[in-house]
Nucleic acid binder design. Structure first.
Lengths: 255, 255
DNA sequence: CGACGGTATTGGTATTAACCAATTGTTAAG
DNA sequence: CTTAACAATTGGTTAATACCAATACCGTCG
């Protein structure tokens, strides 16, 4: 320990939050959580440099190895970026794995963010011709439609319109916070999905709901979810802001 | 160093290969390479347990932390799997971890559509700072750059800028129609890739080359290609028109 | 004013040394 | 013979320390 905490360190410590002795998670997890909230709470803005690893170690009262392990995880998630000789920076965009079937709630939970939604509408009806086609359902089949804005720590992330077969849920009210949780409860959670990503310009409605401007770049992810029997049970369209979201995929190039 | 190498250790050491003192890569990379070849050469078969970390450390003459760092990377790639209290095992099916992610036009091309390109530039140079970062190459490393517009049946589909390490190709002219074909000929075809998709608005240059208008929605696909040793050898940025291109992925439930 | 070069800063690699936590195998008790 | 308790094995976490490598900053020189 080369020197005593300075006044500035004290300030930083308060801004990051001290570690809790009664927390039984590994230290590096706790440090990770502190850094995460510092980012989501805008204590650290995009492109900001974190304090040096050695300083963070002092600050939290842990070794530099522990700090590095914490940072390493956030780098893997695409939240942080390290540059040797320069520093560690907050990445401007969120990276989302395009090849993993996870729900929004799960994704955000994995990042330590608080997922919430604002319901726009929730209705019962019969399949539209387009839905009938994609879900391979007969005309007249009952479906539930859910439309909502998904938020992470209060910030709009995506606009989601989902349609699920009526036979997969007991009622419209079965969906509380997570659609997938509701589907899981009835054993109808999708185990496979077909997903399509395309670019578009946000229209007025989308821009307003996402806190962006008309004509900004946006991403549309359309997904068809299949249950264990190979039947299509869910169709959703999600709109993302282009400047806050990246989709990452790891792939094999076998011939 | 608790005990001397035993006869069995000697055998194992020969099977894995000793570390080379003249190799200037980091030790954990060298250990990683040894483990990789042990797996590809079937010295370690699927579901086999690796020797314990402490034993590997002895074997290679490095610290346990170094061994752990080597293993960690292979776990991230899906090659190995660790089970606390039990051991570290070779994963049975590596490919299954990675999604196949194909573009629509790749599928079209596979169905006999005429894929062609117009070369914009083709040059030899040294890595830019950004390329050095993504390819993990030292400054001054020779690279080849290829820039072209890709067409399907004469219609511009994408604008592609690719950079490959100079050591992977005999010369600039080795690339005729397909970069991958040229890489394959020298045994440097990427076997794994990391791909990022993001939305953007097309600028003047991009719009003109793609036959679109400035401010139209576009997709940027950045890809880093890795060879069998896990070394990054290719970095490419491809711009697509948002209205003519979709990316499709089939995904399965993770875990 | 610009270019060069040293120096301080910052992340990257590596060792040694403990101890914790989960699992597995063995041993002793019933 | 089964089961419970224990011990050994193995990966997981953390510390303290040292040096390397890339970068940024600043002063000096031309």
């Amino acid at each position: 320990m080369p020197d005593e905490p300075t006044d500035r360190d004290q300030t930083l410590a308060e801004r990051f939050g001290r570690l809790n002795a009664s927390d039984h998670r590994p230290l590096y997890r706790q440090v990770q959580a502190r850094l995460r909230t510092a980012i989501t709470d805008r204590v650290l803005a995009a492109d900001d440099a974190l304090p040096p690893e050695r300083e963070l170690a002092n600050l939290f009262g842990v070794s530099r190895i522990t700090v590095r392990k914490a940072i390493e995880g956030l780098v893997n998630e695409g939240v942080l970026e390290t540059r040797q000789g320069s520093g560690t920076f907050v990445r401007a965009k969120v990276e989302k794995n395009f090849a993993q079937l996870t729900s929004f709630s799960e994704e955000m939970a994995a990042r330590g963010l608080d997922a919430s939604s604002v319901w726009l509408s929730r209705s019962e009806g019969t399949v539209s011709p387009e839905e009938a086609m994609t879900l391979r359902a007969s005309p007249g089949t009952v479906v539930y439609r859910f439309s909502r804005v998904r938020l992470a720590n209060g910030t709009p992330m995506s606009l989601e319109k989902a349609t699920v077969l009526g036979s997969t849920l007991p009622s419209l009210d079965a969906v509380d916070r997570s659609l997938y949780t509701a589907l899981k409860a009835t054993g109808n959670r999708p185990v496979r999905a077909l997903q399509r990503l395309s670019a578009l310009l946000l229209n007025e409605e989308q821009a307003e709901l996402l806190g962006a401007r008309v004509g900004d770049a946006g991403l549309l992810v359309e997904r068809i979810g299949f249950n264990g029997d190979g039947a299509a049970i869910e169709f959703s369209q999600s709109y993302y802001r282009g400047d806050t979201y990246d989709f990452v995929a790891e792939l094999s190039l076998g011939d």
